[in-house]
């Protein structure tokens, strides 16, 4: 996957959380997913369909403590459990990160269509990307726990 895709997703993730929740996540070193499985408590997933068969997915997966902190800051009230409001907020966060990254990528000549995000909410669920293309994972830390952003991109069908 090209470095500019990773950079724009990383920048968009930081910008969305800083702007909407006033939380500044610290990115760790990106790595290529080896086991093809990640673990999280709440995950937002969105597809990316571009020109000339370019396709991909972006997923952001929060630990429970982290997303409770982020949404509490975002909406200005204390959230103490994973509920519909948390699920809704993760969907919107995923949507905003995808939108912000797609706008920057469009400026570079990579055009992706908009899509509607999906949210999975279950303690310690796994995320498996069904593709042979490399999956890049960016770990982040906040003062109340961590989350990961992962993305994959391929041309043609099913990678």
């Amino acid at each position: 996957m090209r470095a500019e895709f990773i950079n724009e997703l990383l920048n968009a993730t930081v910008t969305v959380l800083e702007t909407m929740a006033m939380v500044t996540p610290k990115p760790g070193r990106p790595f290529i997913k080896k086991k093809r499985i990640s673990v999280g408590d709440v995950t937002g997933i969105i597809g990316m369909a571009g020109e000339k068969g370019l396709q991909g997915t972006f997923a952001i997966s929060f630990s429970e403590s982290c997303i409770l902190y982020v949404v509490s800051e975002m909406l200005g009230e204390d959230f103490t459990e994973l509920n519909d409001e948390i699920r809704d907020a993760v969907g919107e966060i995923t949507n905003m990160i995808s939108g912000a990254a797609r706008a920057k990528l469009a400026d570079m000549g990579y055009h992706f269509d908009m899509a509607i995000p999906t949210v999975v909410c279950k303690k310690e669920h796994t995320i498996t990307q069904v593709t042979k293309a490399p999956v890049v994972v960016i770990p982040f830390q906040t003062e109340k726990g961590g989350f990961i952003a992962e993305a994959t991109l391929w041309r043609g069908s099913a990678g």
């Binding site: 969305v16 912000a100 706008a103 469009a106 908009m114």
Partner: peptide, 24 residues
């Protein structure tokens, strides 16, 4: 969240009064 220039132009052509790009 659709901050692409073409989208903003489409909204202006359709008569939008103003727009805010997420995140804001």
């Amino acid at each position: 969240a659709e901050a692409k220039r073409q989208n903003i132009l489409s909204a202006i052509q359709a008569g939008v009064t103003n727009y805010v790009v997420k995140p804001f």
